[in-house]
Amino acid sequence: MTTVDLTSVSRWYGNVVAVNDVSMTLAPGVTGLLGPNGAGKTTVLHMMAGFLAPSKGTVTVDGAPAWRNPSLYRHLGLVSEREAVHTFLTAWEFVLASAKLHRLPDPASAARRALELVEMTDAQDRRIGTYSKGMRQRTRVAAALVHDPQVLLLDEPFNGLDPRQRMHMMTLLHDLGAAGRTILFSSHILEEVEQVSGTVQVIVAGRLAASGDYRSIRRLMTNRPHVFAVQSSDDRRLAVALMGQASVTGVEIDPGTGLTVRAGDYGSFTRALPRIALGEGIRLRRLIPSDESLESVFEYLLEA
């Protein structure tokens, strides 16, 4: 069993604090590192991978410091966000070279297994320079997995993948986690995290905003009112009808822009609205969820 521990970790660049007093423990299984762009996810990942020294605090993998410790990579794999690959190599050469650099007893079969795992066997003899973004991504994952590491860190691994590849990558991470590996992947997309991992660490503006089971964090998010902008053929009559709904917690009328509706529950409100409009004979012209941006969700979490 391998754990990654961050204890009161801060990292600053000059006057800018990128990561502020973060403590977390990653246990075997899949953990999602969620946060808006620029929140400090990459900095956290790079400190775990031994590519950055924490300015304060300690980062350890199974008790050993991550910084200035190359033997760490015997048990750890990293897929960075930056899409840097040796474009002049084929996927086979690239993954085989990784296996050799790990001094594996049978590099060829390890490379074959890793390429099969990411479904790159068919294209393995073409130069990486000719690959699509998704293929490069999978090749890099194969190289990071070739030594069967206990810990795998992935920075935005779903970027650039088409839906089928995304599904496949999610299954792969899920299976690795189920097999007892410690997997951490970062993402700024809520739904990705929801589908792969039960455990999340939410990081906002360099701070750990929430941590733990996804469902309880999600509940925190669904408990807050959702705000919708609505325009219809008769705003005032619609407002009266909406106030009768249990899911609606408030309605404002602005003669210029229409209604601003606050709903406690996203699902029941969006299901009820067309029914009400139909029953009242009102024509809906516009329905826009006005606070659905990810940042507002994070802000809400940060306040909670």
Binding site: A49, F51, P70, S71, L72, Y73, R74, L76, G77, L78, S80, R82, A84, V85, H86, F94, S98, L101, H102, R103, A143, A144
Partner: peptide, 15 residues
């Protein structure tokens, strides 16, 4: 510069 050095650095090799 182009970041490919990461592939070599993430190996358990002495620097």
């Amino acid at each position: 510069d182009d970041g490919t050095v990461v592939h070599i650095l993430t190996k358990p090799l002495s620097r």
